[in-house]
Design a protein around this nucleic acid. Structure first.
Lengths: 336, 336
DNA sequence: GTGTAAATAACATACGTATGCAATCGATCA
DNA sequence: TGATCGATTGCATACGTATGTTATTTACAC
């Protein structure tokens, strides 16, 4: 591996001059700068990241803590983050954090990371506090934690839940079910309370046996839907905590020979790309994942630049996306 | 940030002793080792990655070059890689490489990476040669390049294409179409030639106007299917270069009011998780992505350990997965 | 030709860890 | 008791870059 010393020798200058010249710092004559650039090119010199990191104490690497990428939700959040970090001159290290394999703080604190984005954190997690204690810049994306001062980007999930409740009420549904996300995530909780609140404003009951808290996965959505529809009095509409659960619900409904948007109403949340596929066309709430990702990235970079200063909180607005999986309850239409 | 020097001072020993003690090297008495461990714990010491990298010239970071993660193919390849690298004590850095934003070699050669996995490389790419020139260990996963000596893990794509041809022939299809992948990828090419070869062995013609080379995306599959079915004499079966294209095809078919597996046969390739969803149940060829990922990871780690030695080539066997999107041509069934 | 200031380049050191080699300590054996 | 050996530990330095400080060169005015 060729170093700046090699370049210096070839160009007949000192190592420090090479360092300054190649980074375009002032105080180097054009003539020597050209000489050095030529030498660097000849040797295919690339500055050592480790050396630079050690010297500058910055790595230009961001850690993004997320769950399995095979859950189609995460790529839609992670990909625009990667793009935004790329633009900002940072690289992205993916760090898994699952309940089976919980993340240890030391994996984040070895100085590899200039900052961290948390996307999967549960309500009681100690991770944010530990990061704060070690003064590692971080931001919460798509999650919030009670009682912590930290940069945060979230959707107004409660409002989103309310919007769905209104829609179902307007359509005339009375037997309503919900497959919310896990109760220990802010997303699962807030979408649930918003939904519940919205329903009760419209005097619609949400029976406990029609409410589930499940992981944000296809299979959980599938299974829960089968079970909900097996009840003596099955619901006419199911609100899903996110689109991935809704995919499971739609597939489960299809496997029973029913058609979403005709026999039963299925509402998703997040508006990930797949929800617009012809076979789904899921009525959902736009979660603006791209906006969330980009804001989170920018917030983190700003926080790295100025570690002190009041934490910022960005709340994005949900928006109802009407597609093909909502309709008035079947009984009502038959009566008409 | 606390360093090994801080720990040394607190424990009353030298820095080198700290280094050896915490890594469990021999030549340290149990007594001092315990002292040092206690001190390290008190100070929440985590070794600096940059310092270690600089000294050892290894980073324990692997770069994985892939396309957009929002294409559901990649997470299924990348996720098991991440898991395997995790097991092997390495971390994974995702590096995008798209045709719009081509990857420069310097991004891989700054010493950040102990090795690289290439998953998206096109046939004429210079990247493998450049990596070889800089002596950066790498392996090709799911791709091969002609005329390069390198560790490679691939599926026998040609055989896979042949298997599909046999299936279609057995079912009695004569008007057959193919939406292959890009012609400049080994995967697109080999699945295509295998398919073509298999068909001609069964004396079935594959008309040029019924063959497309498209990117491995949902929208490409969707569009191409619409166009193929608009022909005067539409095909009765479409072989898709991978499952993602097949998703596009299935959705396109559905948007025309047809049912895959009834009105038309759609065959995918790779057997990614989604292909088993109730709404798809795509008949496909198992690409053993997990096996590919794990083998690639292990091969790379072995190559890092011993940079010289003959490159290894692992070929995985394709396997037909019969599900719901294949059937004899409609005309034949009507006649019967 | 001399003096001065500015421009340019070199020198020296810090960053944190790993490791070859020297030094020290204690114990064992003759 | 002294020599020797093995077990521990310390010392010194390398890794590659960045940067504060000092030295040198250049340009300019007188």
């Amino acid at each position: 591996m060729t170093t700046s010393h090699d370049v210096a020798k070839l160009a007949g200058v000192s190592q420090s001059t090479v360092s300054r010249a190649l980074r375009g710092l002032p105080g180097i004559s054009e003539k020597t700068r050209l000489q050095i650039q030529r030498a660097a090119e000849m040797l295919a010199y690339v500055p050592s990241d480790a050396g630079r990191s050690l010297s500058t104490k910055r790595t230009r690497v961001i850690g993004v803590v997320s769950a399995e990428l095979t859950n189609p939700f995460f790529p839609e959040l992670v990909e625009p983050m990667r793009a935004e970090f790329e633009r900002l001159g940072y690289r992205m290290l993916l760090i898994p954090d699952s309940s089976e394999n919980p993340l240890e703080i030391d994996r984040l604190a070895d100085g590899t990371l200039d900052g961290v984005i948390l996307t999967t954190v549960v309500l009681g997690s100690q991770l944010p506090h530990r990061l704060a204690a070690r003064k590692i810049p971080f931001v919460l994306a798509n999650r919030e934690i009670d009682g912590i001062q930290a940069d945060t980007v979230v959707l107004d999930n409660q409002l989103g839940g309310k919007i769905v409740a209104s829609l179902l009420a307007d359509l005339g549904h009375e037997k309503v079910a919900a497959i919310l996300g896990p109760a220990d995530t802010s997303v699962g909780r807030d979408r649930g309370t918003g939904f519940q609140q919205g329903l009760s404003e419209r005097r619609i009951a949400l029976l406990p046996e029609r409410v589930r808290n499940e992981p944000f996965t296809y299979s959980a959505g599938h299974k829960a839907t089968i079970e909900l529809l097996a009840a003596a009095e099955p619901p006419t509409a199911i609100f899903c905590g996110n689109d991935v659960i809704a995919f499971g619900a739609c597939n489960a409904v299809a496997s029973l020979g029913l058609i979403p948007g005709h026999d039963i109403t299925i509402i998703g949340f997040d508006n990930i790309e797949m929800s617009d596929w012809d076979l789904f066309r899921i009525t959902t709430v736009n979660g603006d994942l791209k906006g969330m990702a980009e804001n989170a990235a920018r917030l983190l970079i700003r926080r790295i630049a100025s570690p002190d200063g009041a934490p910022e909180r960005i709340t994005l607005e949900p928006e109802l996306i009407l597609r093909a999986t909502h309709a008035p309850p079947l009984g009502m239409r038959l009566r008409a």
